[in-house]
């Protein structure tokens, strides 16, 4: 299990990333490359051989340690990090919202706009950004269309 918590500020929601393996750590590291230093962020990475019971306990301990509001992001709906969160959610000191399918645009958007957001707004912001960031690049830049034209040109020449 790998665990990390950044410097903490009052009045800024904490983003807590949970993942299979190093994804959470790497996602935060990648986000730093773009956004600079990121405060109020923590992660817990489940590693091979970890006991899921211990992972649950650590999630509970970590989330209960923050007086700030928080948003949990997990890598995979139905995976162990997600299920561990679900199994401890009712025993947490306060209500905590979580979203699945964490990705880089989602993290960057939440980190950048979290300050004035309510828990629900944070969760909605993460979900919307995550979905909007997925697109067909070829269509977006009309790349496929150009290629088709190239092919048509070849056919015509033949």
């Amino acid at each position: 299990m790998k665990q990390y918590c950044s410097d903490l500020k009052e009045n800024l929601p904490v983003i807590v990333l949970l993942s299979h393996g190093p994804l959470a750590e790497a996602l935060l590291e990648s986000a730093r490359l773009i956004a600079g230093d990121i405060e109020n962020a923590a992660y817990l990475c489940l590693e091979e051989g970890d006991n899921p019971q211990d992972f649950k306990k650590e999630i509970e301990k970590l989330l209960n340690s923050f007086t700030q509001r928080k948003l949990v992001m997990v890598d995979l709906l139905g995976g162990t990090p997600c299920n561990s969160f679900v199994s401890v959610v009712n025993s947490l000191k306060s209500e905590v919202l979580a979203v699945s399918g964490m990705n880089l645009p989602m993290l960057l958007e939440v980190v950048g706009s979290r300050k004035s957001m309510t828990d629900t707004e944070l969760s909605n912001c993460a979900q919307e950004t995550g979905k909007e960031s997925i697109c067909n690049i070829n269509e977006r830049f009309s790349l496929y269309r150009m290629r088709q034209e190239d092919k048509n040109d070849c056919v015509n020449q033949n």
Binding site: L33, A35, L108
Partner: peptide, 10 residues
């Protein structure tokens, strides 16, 4: 790029 699109625009 990333810094401009996600940080400066905001």
């Amino acid at each position: 790029h990333g810094q401009v699109a996600t940080q400066w625009v905001r």
